[in-house]
Design a binder for these strands. Structure first.
Lengths: 139, 139
DNA sequence: TATAAAATTGTTATAACATCACGTTTTTGG
DNA sequence: CCAAAAACGTGATGTTATAACAATTTTATA
């Protein structure tokens, strides 16, 4: 019944673990550097192949804005997700707001388009960093 | 009174004209190839500098998804814009739906974020291409 | 208008991100 | 077991973007 026989090979598992250990997006070559610690012969293709698989299967998102990758919070459902990145602390938060997703879907349909993929990436400052900024306002 | 003294130098004007002549996003190096026709000593920096200026001033959008650039339809107002790209014909359509923009704004605020930039990029198939596909459905 | 500061451009090199191509090995299903 | 498919190894290369610094042009204003 399971429609998703996801096969996690050693490389894919390693890359996934590297992404799990971070709450900010990581570039492919940063991932490569980490991967080399457990697999000394890793090369860019090793990472890109794993990332391709993981993104195709919804376990990882690419942040196009940054050419970087983050773990998906809820790989079980596939809707239009939103990623918000704090430009001060680089922390990325994924949300999957249904109201927003369905509005996007609706607008695209109304315009006659059939969506295959949609990304919403927000660059912003998070609450915590905003508070910190207030403290340093004298600057 | 005008808050926007946009200075279009020769290079910027040339790059803008190149983008005006296309309804699909163009990569920086494609732009460079065209720019060389009118400025033989153009190099990547020439294009990137012009693109940086034009995007900062809202005359051009970068399509992060494609690492490509398109003309902005309505440089006069600055909200959160949406770009929808047909993956069949590559034509890009920009919209600036206020309902969508304000919902994004609201969701981000509710989550405690102060937006500095938001991009919504949709990869889809346009009405026309969908119709064509139906015709070739036998494939 | 002299002139200093700011903005823009010229130029070379290099960084950062990603894929191609092709051969080998491993996994999978009949 | 065997053939086909999937994954991996490996080296080269392609694509996108920026760093760094010098030279020139523009702008504001004294």
């Amino acid at each position: 019944m399971s429609a998703k026989p996801i096969k996690l090979t050693t490389d894919r598992k390693s890359v996934l673990d590297i992404l799990k250990s971070s709450d900010s997006p990581k570039g492919a070559y940063d991932i490569l550097d980490e991967l080399k610690k457990v697999k000394s012969n890793a090369v860019p293709m090793t990472v890109y192949r794993a990332l391709d698989y993981l993104t195709e299967h919804g376990l990882v998102h690419k942040v196009e804005n940054l050419n970087a990758y983050i773990l998906c919070n809820h790989p079980e459902h596939h809707h239009i997700c939103q990623i918000i990145i704090c430009e001060a602390c680089n922390k990325a938060t994924e949300s999957c707001d249904k109201e927003l997703a369905s509005l996007v879907q609706k607008k695209a349909e109304d315009a006659g388009f059939k969506i295959s993929k949609a990304i919403l990436e927000i660059t912003a400052t998070c609450e915590e960093c905003l508070a910190n900024d207030k403290g340093n306002a004298a600057l």
